[in-house]
Amino acid sequence: MAKGVKPRVKVPKKATAGEVITIKTLISHKMESGQRKDKDGNIIPRSIINTFTCDFNGQNVISVELHGAVSTNPYFQFEAKVPESGEFVFTWLDDDGSTYTDKKSITVA
């Protein structure tokens, strides 16, 4: 697991049925490009977040593939329609095989 990785998600706690809400996600991650060399001249292996997904009650909301040249601490903001109460599950996949997840519940009144 890369050092200093911490997912952060902002989802409103409440919404009305069918409301379009804004979701913000940020993960602190170095996004090592694979182009840099260490002090001894060896290439530092690439280690970036390569996939980001968000699911709501088992249904996919957004799925993103990331490649090189994406900056450190990738930030995503997107909108989702919430038909019912449930749970958002956010997943980030790292090149080194690690998976980072976060969950947020929302109540539909």
Partner: peptide, 12 residues
Amino acid sequence: DFDNPGMIFVDQ
């Protein structure tokens, strides 16, 4: 604070 990338370091 969520949009402020400096807060990542404050958390750390």
